[in-house]
Design a protein around this nucleic acid. Structure first.
Length: 218
DNA sequence: GACGTGATTGTA
DNA sequence: ACAATCACGTCC
């Protein structure tokens, strides 16, 4: 493949705070399996958004796995393919972005092979890259509250429905395979905000991390 | 702690 | 037709 060097030289108005060139890009095959395996492994990895050369991002600190028909909390729970959830049944490694509560976009990464539903919801990142841009997109919020929730994160990264269905090559999102530093631990819990399926412990987060969301389990 | 937002989907 | 939903911001 064409290597792990992201297009950062074109970034306008953003200082890249973290050296990225050594971190390999995560490939599509990484996502071609159970989201319960993918979700915890994404923790600590670097998520980069490049919207027309404006680069933002940071390390992933909180994720949730969503399954197919066996998961009452998933958009793919009872039905088959609908207009909204079609991306969840598509090829792995693509972005599933949806709009909810009339206000917020959510970023998921599709898992499992094409034809099988599954995804990982990115719930929080540690905002480090393109801070100036993220502050503008999240005006009036403290740095700590820039990306500590799924709707907040999507807003800070500039994601909209036009990003739904994009692949890891042609979309705005790239993921770099960073290792979890010694001392950081993965914890699990029930997922947040669900009326069903909360008994499944499919939320994964870095224990004690400052940028983990404050939502309630249920 | 409760409410408005308001697209999509499931239920009536 | 109507209520619920993988939140967030604001007001009480």
């Amino acid at each position: 493949m064409d290597g792990g060097t992201p297009r950062l030289s074109s970034a306008k108005g953003n200082k890249v705070a973290v050296p990225l060139s050594d971190a390999a890009l995560v490939q599509q095959g990484f996502f071609d399996r159970d989201p319960r395996a993918v979700a915890p492994e994404l923790l600590g990895m670097l998520l980069i958004s490049d919207k027309d050369g404006v680069v933002t991002g940071g390390r992933i600190v909180e994720t949730e796995a969503y399954l197919g028909s066996d998961d009452p909390g998933s958009h793919a729970a009872t039905k088959g393919i609908t207009k909204r959830n079609a991306t969840m049944y598509g090829p792995p490694g693509h972005l599933y972005v949806y709009f909810t509560y009339g206000n917020h976009h959510m970023l998921n990464l599709v898992c499992e092979s094409e034809g099988t539903a599954g995804a990982v919801l990115i719930r929080a990142i540690e905002p480090t890259i393109g801070l100036e841009t993220m502050r503008l997109r999240r005006q009036g919020r403290s740095d700590r509250e820039l990306t500590n929730g799924p709707g907040k994160l999507a807003a800070a990264l500039g994601l909209t429905m036009s990003d739904n269905g994009g692949g890891l090559i042609d979309s705005a999102i790239r993921i770099h395979a960073l290792r979890l530093p010694a001392g950081e631990r993965v914890a699990t819990s029930g997922r947040i905000g669900l009326s069903a399926g909360h008994e499944l412990h499919l939320r994964y987060y870095l224990e004690g991390h400052k940028n983990v969301s404050k939502g309630r389990i249920g």
